[in-house]
Design a protein around this nucleic acid. Structure first.
Length: 422
DNA sequence: TCTGGGGTCCTAGGACCC
DNA sequence: TCTGGGGTCCTAGGACCC
């Protein structure tokens, strides 16, 4: 018999973080924008009530913002990341172990707590999180992670649960399963939902009841496992040791389209520089680098083009100069003239710890390079991003990243801590 | 003319997630 | 004018090998 699983999920997380430090945001519609201030990615309950949807582009919302006094904020990931640490710390005593699933969701292994009233237990945990961070949460409890996700969604949607839904309870489970839309089940995306509906499967309950063989035929092992989880059979354990990360990326949309290879090279060089910084920060080296760019898929213009090339990094490295060289080679090979590119990125794969890096012949100046990179990181850490850049990276940033409404680093920068006057 | 079966490794791309 | 960024996992198919 496996332990019960819970999922604790912060309500309107980014907005709740902002409200923790600015009381004027409480009770009014608030949205937080994506990087580049492009679209709404978090909305307060009041903003949702105005019909603002996840992913709505800000330029479609101007009217609502003006007429309803919606407060609009740029995203502040430093703040949200730091607040997450506090949320997880508040939960720690309530579980045998935790798995941080995303910036606002944590799975809890409730093994060892089975003999308690788990609903009361979950309420106590929510109170603790609220006390330490002010952030409101909902909790779902069940036998598997997929069911805990579903329980959590039910707790959010149906006020009669009062913030905690326990789907181990048979009656609650039946009720939720038969009304929960199949497209909202964790792991069912647009493509799969369409196929399932074609088969007459509209709810979580009927997805649970579909034959396993059919599930596999429709959605490979992924859907097969999902159906098992809906039946209460775990096929996705709570992973309490943090897995080695497999890849990382630096990608951005541009403020203005890029049309020349020269300009693309400058942009990708900056991303490669940033990617190197991230690698060094995690103590990793990469074995492969991919550069890609594409035209604006939201525009009706045709034809569109997206190019990408992958190059091996040998030896494996976190050296920004090596990464920049690789990015330029890849970009050159993927480039096509005559298009207006609106997004580009660098992706790094085959990551291993720098200390595990396979040694190769012909590496005699790595010590020197390591010190150079260390100096670069220190200068940029102390004096701000892009204080020191490489010559190949240049200064040809022809567009700037927008982030015009960002809140201060309330909790992580001594110069920005809030002042209290008594 | 006829030209196997089975394995590995790699890449590209789809699907999904927050 | 203006539509996010950063991840994971899985499969198909090609190259290559014996």
């Amino acid at each position: 018999m496996s332990s019960p699983v819970a999922l604790i999920d912060c309500n309107n997380y980014y907005v709740s973080c902002e409200r923790a430090f600015d009381a004027k945001l409480v009770g009014v519609p608030v949205i937080v924008l994506s990087n580049n201030d492009g679209c709404a990615i978090a909305r307060s309950a009041e903003a949702k009530a105005l019909g603002i949807k996840m992913g709505d582009p800000i330029h479609h919302l101007r009217e609502k913002v003006r007429t309803h006094g919606v407060r609009v904020l740029s995203s502040n990931y430093t703040l949200y990341g730091d607040m997450q640490r506090r949320v997880v710390a508040a939960c720690a005593a309530f579980a045998r172990d935790t798995e941080i699933y995303s910036i606002d969701e944590t799975f809890l292994d409730l093994g060892g707590f089975e003999d308690r009233d788990l609903v009361a237990h979950a309420h106590a945990m929510r109170d603790q999180v609220r006390l330490w961070t002010t952030i409101p949460t909902c909790v779902g409890i069940a036998e598997t992670k997929t069911l805990a996700k579903l329980a959590n969604a039910a707790a959010k949607k149906d006020p009669s649960f009062e913030g905690v839904a326990d789907l181990r309870d048979h009656a609650a489970r039946q009720k939720v399963m038969h009304t929960f839309p199949v497209e909202d089940v964790w792991g069912v995306g647009g493509a799969t939902a369409l196929k399932l509906k074609g088969l007459g499967i509209e709810t979580a309950g009927s997805l649970r009841d579909m034959p396993m063989k059919q599930a596999r035929a429709v959605g490979t092992v992924v859907l097969e496992r999902l159906v098992a989880e809906l039946r209460g059979v775990p096929s996705n354990a709570v992973e309490t040791i943090e897995p080695q990360r497999k890849g990382m990326a630096v990608t951005r949309s541009f403020g203005a389209p890029v049309t020349t290879l020269d300009s693309m090279m400058g942009t990708l060089s900056q991303y490669a520089m940033r990617a190197g910084e991230k690698l060094r920060n995690y103590g990793l080296v990469a074995g492969r680098l991919t550069a890609f760019f594409h035209t604006n898929r939201h525009k009706p213009e045709r034809p569109q083009y997206g190019g990408s090339r992958t190059v091996a990094l040998q030896p494996m490295t976190s050296d920004s100069l090596e990464l920049i060289g690789a990015a330029r080679r890849a970009a050159e090979r993927a480039w096509r003239d005559g298009y207006a590119y609106t997004k580009a990125g660098i992706m790094l794969d085959d990551l291993v710890g720098a200390d595990m890096r396979p040694q190769t012949l012909f590496e005699d100046d790595t010590g020197k390079r390591d010190r150079l990179m260390g100096a670069l990181d220190e200068i940029n850490g102390r004096f701000g991003k892009w204080t020191a850049v490489t010559a190949s990276q240049g200064f040809r940033r022809e567009w700037k990243l927008r982030s015009e409404m960002r809140s201060p680093a309330w909790t992580t920068s001594i110069t920005e801590v809030p002042m209290v006057r008594a």
